[in-house]
Nucleic acid binder design. Sequence first.
DNA 1: GCGCCCATGTAACTAGTTACATGATTCA
DNA 2: TGAATCATGTAACTAGTTACATGGGCGC
Lengths: 176, 176
Amino acid sequence: LLGLLTFCPMSGYDLKKFCDKFISQFWHENYAHIYTVLKELDKEGLAIKKTVQTDSRPLKSVYSITAKGKAELTEWLHQPAQASPPRYEFILKLFFSADVPAEDLIENFKRLKNSLDQAIAVSEENEKGIVEDNEAGEKQKMLWRITSDCGKYNNQAMVRWCNETLAKLETLKHSE
Amino acid sequence: LLGLLTFCPMSGYDLKKFCDKFISQFWHENYAHIYTVLKELDKEGLAIKKTVQTDSRPLKSVYSITAKGKAELTEWLHQPAQASPPRYEFILKLFFSADVPAEDLIENFKRLKNSLDQAIAVSEENEKGIVEDNEAGEKQKMLWRITSDCGKYNNQAMVRWCNETLAKLETLKHSE
DNA sequence: GCGCCCATGTAACTAGTTACATGATTCA
DNA sequence: TGAATCATGTAACTAGTTACATGGGCGC
């Protein structure tokens, strides 16, 4: 899974940064996982480690993808993505909230809306970053824009959902 | 987490059915998990087990929620839902697909669109079921509708995204 | 008689997370 | 001098999944 993160040679630390910056909207990795996987990749010959001494900085272990790693990645890209079992705690709680006062639910929805607005703002920032990036090819840029749109569309849909739900809950609150 | 599934007393088997039918859009449970949790709930006094002999059927172990369990549930409902780390394999693969021919990507998107259409059809079926259900209170019904809308809005947003992306990929395909 | 649905569970395993441990450099 | 950032890793634990094991009843 991490073999694909070898866009360019990177260290475990770099990889984490990269994940947080570019793919955090739809994927998440933590240090522990990255370092263990990196070690495995090295053992399996899918990536190779090189220890580099950067000036006035601690040692870095930079990993590069090998030919074998590239083959594995292509293989992975060709098999269809499998959907992960859904786990939306917010919705789950909502489902069981028949005995919770409407007012509390309204509070929850307002909070959710705020965090959605924030997420939308962040993704708009990111989109600007894509346009300005000159290193990436046209197709790559297009794919980035597409992935970013996915998050945006979802978030917009959720905002709409929040607004409509808030309206419903307001009427409920008055009748309670 | 399963204490809340005690809408009415149910066995492990019933719970699984219930999950699949009503909350599968946003939550997923498997038998192994259910039975282990059920046992724990019993041990902690949050639910009690009763073995029931139904006519001409194997023994059933029906669990009911206790007062302590209800308190725990209320407590849980009152703390804010925590977002689970996102894992969208489809988008992740897309992100790394710069070297995959546009034609293959188009195929993937068509498949995704089909499954989305199916999901929308299913949720529309479910919505009919809600309206017809006479046992549930008005507020409960409203909450069900709201949760169901959430899925619908998301799916619709995704369909829109698929369509727009397909158009983009078509032009890319012709230039490749 | 065969396959499907009802019904319950355990054991082994895999994946993922948290917490810990360490230490250098840079900047306020 | 202390906080933040760079940098790498391990150990212990928790959660979740797969696979296995079992057996009766019902409908075709």
